[in-house]
Design a protein around this nucleic acid. Sequence first.
DNA 1: CTAATGACGATTC
DNA 2: CGAATCGCCATTA
Length: 106
Amino acid sequence: MGRIDPEEYAEMVLTCVEQVPRGRVTTYGAIAEVVGARLGGGGPRQVGAIMASYGGPVPWWRVVRADGSLPPSHQGEARQRYLEEGTPLRPTGSVDIRRAFWRPAV
DNA sequence: CTAATGACGATTC
DNA sequence: CGAATCGCCATTA
């Protein structure tokens, strides 16, 4: 049996995403640290897997890569959201992670 | 059991 | 900044 209960892991990931305020973002890695510290195991890729399967209902555009970029397939959709809620962007179009980063609570 | 996969991350060129 | 490469880790084939 795996040490981690998949449902519990997914639920905690989604909870973290819901905590991110408008105009701010967090990263897959940051969420992985928080959830990993609580449940043990997992990693950025596992967080990504959860978002792909159950991320629909939550503000998924507030979760970006460590460098502030997003998969090409989501850039168009996310772009509008960022302009709406005033998320700091860089000339390249990706999020200015240095200014917008939000650290989820442990 | 081994190989491939993926909404990742850090490093290097 | 962009592309290539390697490491990571659970899930799937």
